[in-house]
Design a binder for these strands. Sequence first.
DNA 1: TAAATCCTGTCA
DNA 2: TGACAGGATTTA
Length: 314
Amino acid sequence: MPELPEVETVRRTIWPAIAGRTISEVIVEHPDVVGGGLDAARFAALLCGARFAASRRRGKYLVFELEREVVPVGADGNPCTQAGEGASAPGEPAALPMRLELLVHLRMTGKLACVEPGCADLPHTHLRVRLDNGTELRFADTRRFGRWLILDGRAEAPQGYRELGAEPLEEGFDVEAMRGALAGRYGKLKALLLDQRRIAGIGNIYADEILHRAGLHPERRADDLDSGEIERLWRSTRDVLREAIGKGGTTIRDYVDGRGRRGDFVYSLRVYGRTGELCVTCGRAAVERVVVAGRSTHFCPACQSLPEPAESRP
DNA sequence: TAAATCCTGTCA
DNA sequence: TGACAGGATTTA
C-alpha cells in the first residue's frame, strides 16, 4: 500500500505528536512485527527511555532517530543489544549516551496512529509505544508484513535498506541521475521503477501513473530511451510524487495517514484502477490492464505506444 | 527474470 | 471458492 508519498505523509502527520517525546513503555502484542533478529523483550528494553530526536524518510522506510542516556540492562544482566553482536566488553561502562535508529516499514497494510490512551484500537494492532505525556503511537497491520527494526550502530541494516537507490525528490536527482538509473538495464521500464535499488520509494500505483504521464509503455526496454524520453520520465517521476504528497497520498482501500485521513491523490489517478475506462488524457483509447514484472499494470495504448520491433518495420 | 512466500480481507 | 491486493525477500 504505502509508497513514497504515503510514507512521507504518515511521517509528517505523526511527527508533531512524538517529536522530543520520551518513550515510557513499549507493548509488543505480536512479535512478528519486530525484525532484525531482535526478540520482543530486548526491542522494548532498547526503546524504553529513548527520546524521539529526529525523523526522516528513506524510500518507503520511516526513520526515527532516538537518543537515550544509558544502555539498558536486560533481565539476564546483559546490555540489550542485538543478540551476540559485539555486546559491551566486561568492565566497559554501560552508561553512555546512545543513538538509535528506529526503522518502520509499513509494507502493504501497516498503519501508524498517535492517539490518547483510552482510544479504541484499530483492528490488528500489534505494537504500542507509550510516550511520557500519555499519548500512544500505535501500529496496526492487517496482513502483518510490516516491520519495526532497531539499528544501534553495531547491527548491520537489512540488505533492502542498505541497497536503496536514489531519492527521486532530492535536489541531486537530476536528469543525469535518471539516465544513470536506466543505464545498462535490459529489463522493462515498469520493473525498473519498482526496483528499490535504482530509485527508492516507487510502488505499483505510482509506477503506472509516472509511465502514463511520461507517455512511455511499461514494457519499453529501460536502456532504449532517447534523451527526450529520459527527461520526460524524470520530470513525470518528480511531478507525480510531489503532487501525490501534496494531496496526502492515495487511498485505494486501506491507507490512512497518521491522523486517520485518506489520501486525495486517488482522484488524480489517470490509469491505475481505471481498466476499461476511456483515457482521461487522450480520450482515444480505453485503459488496459496487463501483468508486467508480476504486477498488475495499467496503461493507455494510445498515449503509451510500444515501438514496433525492428524486424517488423517496413 | 519469474515464481513462491509471508498474511488477511474483499470481491466477483 | 478462487483470484487478487498498494511490498520485499528468497529461491529456482
